[in-house]
Computed example of a mutant assay.
Amino acid sequence: MVVVVAAAAIAIPSWISGNKPASTSTATVKLGVDDAGSAYWKLVAQRAEEQGVKLELVSFTDYSTPNPALVSGDIDVNKFQHLRYLAQFNASQKQDLVPVGSGEIYPIGFYSKKWSSVAEVPQGAEVALSNNPANQVRPLLALKEAGLVVFKGDPGWKATLADVDYAKSRIGKITPIDPTQTAASLDSVDIAFVDSQFAANAKLTAQQEIYKESAERDDLQQYINIFVAKAKDADNPAIATLVKIYQSDEIKQAIHSEKGQDAVFRSDVPVSELKAVLAEQQKQFS
């Protein structure tokens, strides 16, 4: 069962922070997130208040709830998903939620305890990845980009495990496992795709991550994390203020300080381009 666990206003009085007084005219924005406990949101709220926007964070415990909450009007905007996820939601639920600002992308990569570089990975190597088919295409394309697998034909973003041509690939075996076990699998396999949180929990090092995809690849724009609102609120000035604050160097630095350096910010991608990527993705899911 999905539960909304908190809805807290965290606007910080300016007399506490020592900054200039907040505007006497304020607009309230309810923002749905899945990491409301992160300290950087307090800084976002403080800067928003200084510009006349009272930020209320609404915390969600999983990914299935924030979009329906946005559709129903329980929140004004959310920030938890990438464009591909939004495309799937819009197509399956026949909605028209829209991106209103770009955030960060988290490049995926693979780790190894046996090899220190991609060049060292031997012929016939074994790789572990998620057993969720929906989360396999991106690792497969990363393996292709790294020169470790060759596909039969050119499946692109429809690639599956069945498309791997092992006779032409350096990888000899792909083992799908529960993603929570990928870090532990490194004791037995050559390489493994490990989600950043699981990698941190397993204390994997940057040196053990022997490959990371390029966040600048055009085909990865679908994985940019975005602010999302209803179409009618696409030009809401209070939401635009919130997005601009989030994209500031100050907030980027705060996020990196709290969550590490994995996030690559793509605030250079305009909303018009985000919408174009979304439209293309929705065609695939319709």
Rank of each mutant, 00 (worst) to 15 (best):
Asn135Gln: 14
Asp178Asn: 15
Ser248Tyr: 02
Leu86Lys: 07
Asn90Thr: 05
Val3His: 13
Lys212Gly: 08
Ile105Asn: 10
Leu204Trp: 01
Arg266Tyr: 08
Ser112His: 04
Asp76Gly: 08
Gln207Arg: 14
Leu83Glu: 09
Val71Asp: 09
Asn78Asp: 13
Ala7Thr: 15
Gln51Cys: 06
Val100Glu: 00
Trp41Leu: 04
Lys283Pro: 04
Gly147Ser: 01
Asp96Cys: 02
Leu161Ala: 03
Trp15Phe: 15
Ala9Gly: 14
Tyr111Ile: 02
Glu258Met: 00
His256Asp: 05
Val33Pro: 01
Gln93Asn: 14
Gly156Tyr: 08
Ala125Gly: 00
Val3Phe: 13
Asp195Gly: 15
Val271Pro: 07
Ile105His: 10
Trp115Phe: 09
Lys114Ser: 00
Lys30Ile: 11
Asp268Asn: 11
His256Ala: 10
Lys113Gln: 06
Ser267Asn: 15
Gln93Leu: 04
Lys232Trp: 04
Thr65Asn: 10
Val58Ser: 05
Ala22Glu: 13
Asn132Ala: 13
Trp115Gly: 00
Leu86Glu: 06
Ala263Ile: 09
Val2Ser: 15
Arg84Trp: 12
Arg84Met: 12
Gln46Asp: 14
Phe285Ser: 05
Val29His: 06
Trp157Arg: 15
Ile251Gln: 00
Gln93Trp: 05
Asn225Met: 14
Lys94Cys: 01
Thr182Lys: 08
Val3Cys: 09
Ala45Ile: 09
Thr61Glu: 15
Val71Asn: 09
Val29Gln: 03
Leu70Ile: 07
Asp235Cys: 06
Asn135Thr: 13
Ala146Lys: 04
Gln208Ser: 03
Asp195Cys: 05
Pro13Ser: 04
Val137Cys: 11
Glu126Leu: 02
Ser14Thr: 13
Val77Lys: 03
Phe151Pro: 02
Tyr223Ile: 08
Gln247His: 07
Pro237Leu: 02
Ser112Ala: 00
Gly52Val: 06
Asp163Ile: 05
Pro155Ala: 01
Gly52Arg: 08
Val33Glu: 01
Thr65Gly: 11
Leu143Glu: 03
Glu120Met: 01
Lys30Thr: 12
Val264His: 10
Ala229Cys: 05
Gln93Pro: 09
Gln207Leu: 10
Asp178Arg: 12
Pro139Ser: 04
Leu274Phe: 10
Gly156Thr: 09
Lys144Ala: 13
Ala202Trp: 03
Ser117Ala: 02
Val53Thr: 04
Leu242Ser: 00
Ala229Met: 07
Lys42Val: 09
Phe60Ile: 02
Ala69Thr: 06
Met1Asp: 11
Leu242Lys: 06
Asp76Thr: 07
Leu140Val: 05
Ala234Tyr: 07
Asp96Trp: 04
Leu140His: 07
Asn201Thr: 14
Ser38Gln: 13
Val150Trp: 00
Phe193Trp: 08
Phe227Pro: 06
Ala39Glu: 12
Asp195Phe: 12
Ser169Ile: 00
Ala39Phe: 12
Val33Ser: 01
Ser92Asn: 11
Leu55Lys: 02
Val44Ile: 11
Gln247Ala: 11
Glu280Cys: 08
Lys113His: 07
Leu204Thr: 02
Gln282Lys: 11
Glu49Leu: 15
Thr205Phe: 01
Tyr223Trp: 13
Leu161Tyr: 04
Gly37Gln: 10
Tyr223Phe: 15
Asp35Gly: 11
Glu56Gly: 08
Lys114Gln: 01
Ala119Arg: 06
Phe89Asp: 03
Gly153Lys: 08
Asn78Lys: 10
